[in-house]
């Protein structure tokens, strides 16, 4: 049974690896990653500050680019995986062979895993390597391990979107419909949900106190330093209390977003603790890898369960659907 799946996977892999679509996405990712690491180091130079762990700083910047590119890669590989075969009539030819329907889905998945793995690993390592050479940064063994973990979770994120888009593709007769739905979901998770969370936060807590904003403006210059001299402790507490509540509401709403869970993991991995309502702060110390993995266990589970759910759904829809 798997023999046929591997035959399909081999063909799919060759088709994808030689497609312009894949090279375009990988190229854009590489370009954005390197450009963003440049802008990060430039902002440090202007601010006259030293990053605590320069490699983590660079990887963190690459991770924020990856948060956008990995889903797009998954969608690009899956949106026409089944619906495209259906549109072109090649599904009829495939299903007229002595194979099981599962072979078709398995073949697509095996190929996608290989392509996603290869693309993300190669482009991440290329971005990191180029950045290291450009910024002349020292790399420790711990940095390498963190980058490897980051690559694994980026593959999982991309595969999560692949699984979702594949699911849409299994019941869609037109690839354009499948693409629109998949991109719509990505936009919702990546952009709209955070806007919604801001609206809900303000609706629940009301606008932040005017004085609290003034406090924030005075303290934001210092990374992680909320005890700026000259700011009364009561005002600081008022501000922090508001922000803590806002962060709680925001995290509850964004828990529905797969992107959010990925960002939580990569932020912890590279020592970037996102502040409430999008204002961030850089932690002075970076937690050890085991600590990151244990504190982010829920995020990891969600990230892994999401694609599994949609893969199972894809199998169910495709094997039950009758192709005339």
């Amino acid at each position: 049974m798997m023999k046929n799946a591997f035959s399909i996977a081999r063909k799919e892999f060759t088709d994808t690896i030689t497609s312009k679509r894949l090279w375009l996405i990988a190229g854009i990712f590489l370009l954005f990653s390197i450009a963003s690491t440049y802008s990060t180091s430039f902002s440090f130079m202007i601010g006259g500050q030293q990053a605590v762990r320069p490699m983590a700083q660079i990887a963190s910047t690459i991770a924020s680019t990856m948060a956008y590119m990995a889903p797009l890669l998954g969608i690009a590989l899956a949106f026409d995986a089944i619906s495209g075969e259906r549109e072109r009539g090649t599904l009829r030819i495939l299903l007229s062979r002595p194979i099981y329907r599962e072979d078709v889905v398995n073949g697509k998945i095996i190929s996608a895993l290989a392509v996603i793995g290869l693309t993300i690993a190669v482009s991440s390592l290329a971005s990191v390597s180029v950045s290291i050479l450009l910024h002349k940064v020292a790399v420790t063994l711990d940095d390498v391990a963190r980058i490897c973990i980051f690559i694994v979770f980026s593959i999982v994120l991309s595969f999560a979107y692949y699984a979702f888009s594949l699911f849409i593709s299994t019941f869609s007769n037109k690839s354009s419909h499948s693409l629109i739905i998949s991109i719509g979901i990505w936009i919702f998770f990546a952009f709209i949900l955070s806007i919604i969370s801001s609206f809900v936060t303000i609706a629940v807590l009301g606008p932040p106190p005017t004085r609290a904003i003034a406090v924030f403006n005075r303290t934001r210059r210092g990374f992680g330093n909320f005890t700026s001299p000259g700011v009364p402790a009561s005002e600081l507490e008022e501000y922090l209390s508001y922000m803590r509540k806002a962060a709680e509401i925001s995290s509850i709403i964004q828990a529905f977003s797969i992107n959010y869970h990925y960002t939580q993991i990569t932020d912890s991995l590279f020592g970037f603790a996102a502040g409430p309502l999008g204002f961030g702060q850089r932690e002075r110390t970076i937690a050890s890898i085991p600590t990151v993995l244990s504190t982010r266990l829920i995020d990891i589970i969600v990230l892994i369960v999401f694609p599994i759910v949609f893969l199972v759904a894809s199998y169910m829809v495709f094997t039950k659907r009758q192709e005339k």
Binding site: R88, T90, R92
Partner: peptide, 11 residues
């Protein structure tokens, strides 16, 4: 089987 409305991989 020669199905109706079949297609091939054009590339």
């Amino acid at each position: 089987l020669l199905p109706e409305g079949f297609g091939f991989y054009d590339h």
